[in-house]
Design a protein around this nucleic acid. Structure first.
Lengths: 201, 201
DNA sequence: GACAGTCTGGTACGTTTGTTCCAATTTGAC
DNA sequence: GTCAAATTGGAACAAACGTACCAGACTGTC
């Protein structure tokens, strides 16, 4: 594949993600994507053998990019010595900013999760993304003094997933300060407390 | 609407949920639903003006039923005095059992979340379900001695949402004992510990 | 600059889609 | 039983769909 072709097929995948974000995975058709990308219909079938492949490849691209973003974030945050509150604020700001920058990408990632429930071929990439999430969360959990960083990382990642979906569906305006930061502050704060150290009086 | 009509339209909605669970929201077409329900195509258009209405009504029905189920659960569990571990075990068993009984319903509820991101008409019912979730979680949080039951309930609900989606996409075999119960035990256990009561030595 | 491989854009075909229509049947109130 | 309203099932339609095709243009290699 030549350079031009690579560029075009990537544009088609990005257009696919925009369609998913705006109108859902059902709206992904060769014609809708071609219109969004500004290319003729034959281009989408030239680069992608079928509609299914087009959708899968777009979701996989979104997951791969998000995985890379998280891995960069791990490298950035790992060496820093932050308190639980600072960790909560940093992660909240990152996630809220990312959601604000590209909501369609996050919608697509949830669609990926549901699609993976039916299409095992998607699970490997989804697992890779999940593991990148866990690594980042584990760094944070260790930093705030968790004595069970592996388990706590799972809880943190699941919490963020749940809050994110809730936000996509409700579009609250104070997501970062009103939801994300309080929840993470509470979570990191409680994880830093030694378990069962205090017996009820 | 006569009794027979009510019964038939409900069957059509249930068939719609089965289609969603098996092949996703994209697969919901008048014909696919009619085939699944064993009725002619004209029945689905007779009871539901458009494909969109069919999909929306099915998702709303799933949410309403789940809300009612949760409210019954609140009444059952509210008076009982359980430890944090017992709460974790009880909630884990309930959720894992429910997921096992009807995975399609939970897939549909996630589809509802994503659909609500684009269709504000769905948000009211989604919010009602969310609030039922929060009430149940809050009962649990109070029972284990949380000093911030409102906030903690949000965290618990978000965590369960995240773990559930992860499970739908990965289909681990030991979901209840290997994922759900450890996470909830940890969460309830840490919430029971007074925040910041212990200063680092 | 010649040439094979890559890419483009337009057209076309058969299928599936949402929706409408309607004659025939069933239902429940009176 | 009567009658209007509700329901049924089948046929039909235009529109949108996935996909295949192809003649021409482009690209990189030699």
């Amino acid at each position: 594949m030549y350079q031009k072709g690579e560029r075009r097929s990537e544009e088609i995948l990005r257009a696919t993600l925009r369609v998913i974000g705006a109108r859902g995975a059902d709206a992904v058709t060769h014609r809708a994507v071609a219109r969004e990308a500004g290319v003729p219909v034959s281009s989408t079938t030239y680069y992608f053998d079928s509609k299914e492949e087009l959708l899968e490849r777009a979701l996989l691209m979104a997951a791969r990019e998000e995985t890379e973003r998280l891995e960069r974030l791990v490298l950035d945050l790992a060496p820093s010595a932050l308190s639980a509150d600072e960790w909560a604020a940093a992660v909240s700001a990152q996630l809220a900013g990312d959601l604000n920058d590209d909501p369609a990408k996050h919608v697509a990632l949830f669609e990926l999760g549901l699609e993976a429930a039916r299409t095992p071929a998607l699970r490997a990439e989804l697992a890779r993304w999940q593991e990148a999430n866990l690594r980042l969360a584990e760094v944070g959990c260790r930093a705030v003094g968790s004595d069970e960083p592996g388990l706590d990382a799972r809880v943190v990642v699941a919490t963020l997933t749940g809050l994110l979906l809730e936000q996509l569906a409700s579009e609250r305006e104070d997501f970062e300060t009103g939801v994300l930061r309080p929840a993470l502050t509470r979570l990191f704060g409680q994880l830093a407390v030694p378990s069962r150290a205090v017996a009820p009086l």
